[in-house]
């Protein structure tokens, strides 16, 4: 059996009296395409923050490729391959698309601590960033400042920055959030082209995105795992429908 890309053991998080994530055991295989869904307040983003290292768990452990990383700060986890994107774009608004990606590459390669040589001494950064942007159809926007960029394109830059860090585990927090569903196909196309070796965990409310992208789905309710299985199993699970208060969460033609 190959080691899991990511594993959480009894991961628990408490904000005051509120238990947001409760003893969660979660596995992500290498190359996985896994979705985490659940109603608002289910603890999905908190789970991402715990795994990425933006929050510390009350107890429990996080293992990356079998190694315990619970005690590591966020920067150290990024160096080991856990990379996350944000639900609301977190970009360098006054820098160009290319600069946004170049900063990530410089950080990944340890160039960002170089103090005594100009950035121009590292032309490969720009070459790599340009190639990466071309792969995401962002080449035409390379010299545009983020603040002048349409939000849908900004969502692609989020993904570009994450890929620039060469992750082995990628946490996508609602990659299509904030853009009209008519445009979400651009994000979906980008997700389809993610390198197969990366283990991807996606969080999304858009069931169209989830059911198209994921090969496994975990349903989180009140910080607990309610169900886990293939998209077909989840679509057929009556508990999942109840958890969403009777709403039909499923896109047309799924599970019917």
């Amino acid at each position: 059996m190959t080691a899991l890309a990511l594993e959480t053991r009894d991961l628990h998080n408490r904000f005051g009296g509120l238990e947001v994530v409760r003893n969660l055991n979660f596995n992500l295989a290498p190359g996985a395409r896994h979705a985490l869904i659940g109603p608002n307040g289910a603890g999905k983003t908190t789970f991402v923050n715990l795994v990425a290292g933006a929050l510390s768990p009350s107890h429990g452990a996080i293992l990356l490729h079998g190694r315990d990383i619970t005690g590591l700060v966020q920067a150290a986890r990024v160096k080991r391959g856990i990379v996350r994107t944000f639900q609301i774009s977190q970009l360098f608004r006054n820098l160009t698309v290319l600069e946004n990606v170049a900063l990530a590459i410089a950080e990944r390669d340890g160039i960002a601590r170089v103090l005594w040589r100009g950035l121009a001494a590292f032309p490969t950064i720009v070459d790599e960033a340009v190639a990466l942007l071309a792969g995401l159809d962002l080449a035409a926007d390379a010299t545009t400042a983020i603040r002048a960029l349409a939000y849908g394109r900004q969502r692609l830059v989020e993904i570009a920055i994450a890929l620039a860090l060469k992750p082995s585990v990628l946490l996508l927090d609602e990659p299509a959030a904030g853009i009209p569903s008519a445009e979400s196909h651009v994000i979906l196309a980008a997700l389809d082209r993610l390198p197969p070796a990366i283990a991807v965990l996606i969080i999304d409310h858009d069931m169209g995105v989830v059911f198209r992208f994921a090969r496994r789905i975990t349903v989180l309710v009140g910080g607990l795992t309610l169900a886990e299985g293939t998209p077909a199993e989840i679509a057929a699970d009556p508990r999942v429908r109840t958890a969403y208060l009777g709403e039909s969460i499923l896109p047309d033609g799924v599970g019917r």
């Binding site: 966020q74 360098f92 860090l165």
Partner: peptide, 8 residues
């Protein structure tokens, strides 16, 4: 926030 997320 972004700088933390790119491992700086």
């Amino acid at each position: 926030k972004r700088m933390h997320a790119i491992g700086a």
